[in-house]
Design a binder for these strands. Sequence first.
DNA 1: CCTCGTCATTGAATCGATTCAGGCTGACGA
DNA 2: TCGTCAGCCTGAATCGATTCAATGACGAGG
Lengths: 348, 348
Amino acid sequence: MAPTQGIGLAEVARVAGVSVATVSNALNRPEIVAVATRDRVFEAIRELDFVPNRAAATLRRGTNHLIALFVPEVANAFYSEIVSAVADEAARHDFVIGLCVTHDEPEREVFFANSLAEQRAAAAIVVPITADAPRLSQLRRVGTRLVLLDRIAANADGCSVGIDDVLGGELAVRHLLSSGAAAVTLVNGPHSVQQCADRHAGALRALAAAGLPASALHEIVVDAMTVDAGRRVGRQLAAGPNRPAVFCVNDQLAVGIIGGLREHGVDVPSQALVVGYGDQSLALDGPVPLTSVAQPTHQMGVEAVRCALAEVNEGAEHVHRTVQLRPRLVVRGSAPAIPEPGRGAPAR
Amino acid sequence: MAPTQGIGLAEVARVAGVSVATVSNALNRPEIVAVATRDRVFEAIRELDFVPNRAAATLRRGTNHLIALFVPEVANAFYSEIVSAVADEAARHDFVIGLCVTHDEPEREVFFANSLAEQRAAAAIVVPITADAPRLSQLRRVGTRLVLLDRIAANADGCSVGIDDVLGGELAVRHLLSSGAAAVTLVNGPHSVQQCADRHAGALRALAAAGLPASALHEIVVDAMTVDAGRRVGRQLAAGPNRPAVFCVNDQLAVGIIGGLREHGVDVPSQALVVGYGDQSLALDGPVPLTSVAQPTHQMGVEAVRCALAEVNEGAEHVHRTVQLRPRLVVRGSAPAIPEPGRGAPAR
DNA sequence: CCTCGTCATTGAATCGATTCAGGCTGACGA
DNA sequence: TCGTCAGCCTGAATCGATTCAATGACGAGG
């Protein structure tokens, strides 16, 4: 133990024949150190296998090279893609990321806020449980900058990055309409979930733009947004009016619906159109590849880190921004681009 | 800024009318502080909204309340379940987790090893790129304890937690045999992947136990272990001998294979049996629920944290252990428990 | 030859919690 | 009354990197 204990700047300085201040400078502001000296220092560092102690730097500077990341879940494609992107982008800038999985439980949010405040995290990228995130005050107190993700509110004291879900809903429904549908069925979750409400709003906007009344949207609200729930809705739709055009608030539901329809001999896309949301991998796994609204999760993560670093680096003159990313429709077999030959012309 | 700067033990001590040493003791060894004093201290802490500075403690103690977690990917059900479990268990013990996504790239492993060594992580839970993980030496140097996950080697200097993949393979094939199959098709990835080799070995063991020759195992090695690759194999199998019994090395392949078989009118389970591996959510998403080998990912994560904490707390007298977790067969429609009525008696 | 400016380097204070060797107090037994 | 002891508390050193004012060296310009 003892031998490896305590190799600090001091030891490096001794070996390189310079002062600790110079070693520190060589590490942090190489440009102000003479080349020869710098080389000698790095030589010594290598020779001693010196690993700087970030705790000392954090203590002195008051801020750690650490970004907290708060997400409700990890075992969920949407969030895990974000986590992945954030992790990569943070690493590119030499920041460690401290992962906080809140399970949407406020106590956990508070708990992690505390832990990461103790660590003096430089910034926190947060998918907040409630929009204003009052539980993060501990972080604010120690100077941690906040970036809100996905669930955007009027975030007076920080940047935020989100996705335009209204646009996503609009894209989906616009596509269905342009494929000849005269009415659309929206299979949605509860409107208390912002995303669900937004996508519904987008659907209405698309109808309005096409000159159709709001009554052309039939909304079915399910409690669980799973494949199985989708399957049940699919069976139900199979018994309903002909040639439904269905927009599902996520891919699970969409895949289930296609399954339910097929069970009853309703083919997709020739006898029904289905559009999902999320463009998750299961969109490609079913018998019919799913047309779906892709969310720029990777871009979100990257953008969030950029904001966080901007907050950290620019200091007082930093101007907060709100980044709104645009989803994109990925057209596949379940609702192809060109109206099916067998399908009639747009009704009316 | 200035007002919130610098609320340390000293300030708390002043307000509570005690020394900093006492405040520190109240926080870390409450039992040695008189109750009245302790109350006064906590009162002051609350009043001042004091957030201890973990950097100072880390500096002094030489170790941080931080566990590094190295995984190859996050956007992958197997790993994200582990990450989730580790994150939860670590939080229960008041440790922050530092997430390192290596993408199986050695440079990243080295890079993160460095970053987390600088942070003086107390322990690292690592899914190593190569078994012996020589790239983690920086961590060892600063006293970070290592726990190897999933890819176990003779890990002389640490605990390890893994899954018995041989048993997993055996369970799957034993099930197929007990359902009347006289031969089994294994759809596998390259044997250079340890898991693939192990599951193959398990398959052979099951055959041997049933008194069947190794030639009763037909192995098909695919390069990509995706749903799509599975679909291709399924089509191929549909053209082959009757009533195949297929064991797939993951659920993606299994789902694809069922799809491919059905395209050609081969029904599952009446005309073919399929067992997957991993028991991921997509096992339930297809038209036929998948029989699959479930991996105790959650337990793995929990166990890994327990090992890590044991390493950290027990110090010198700690005895390393190797935990081998047992997978479990989850029987569903694609290979049901009772031989299908339509199926013949076990051949020979 | 002197002065001044530039560039490289250094000494020493500082960040805040931990820790340990004492110091003080009051109770109790002798 | 005094000694002893347990229980509680404190002073001060310590961890290692950062930072800034200050020093020194050296060359150019006068």
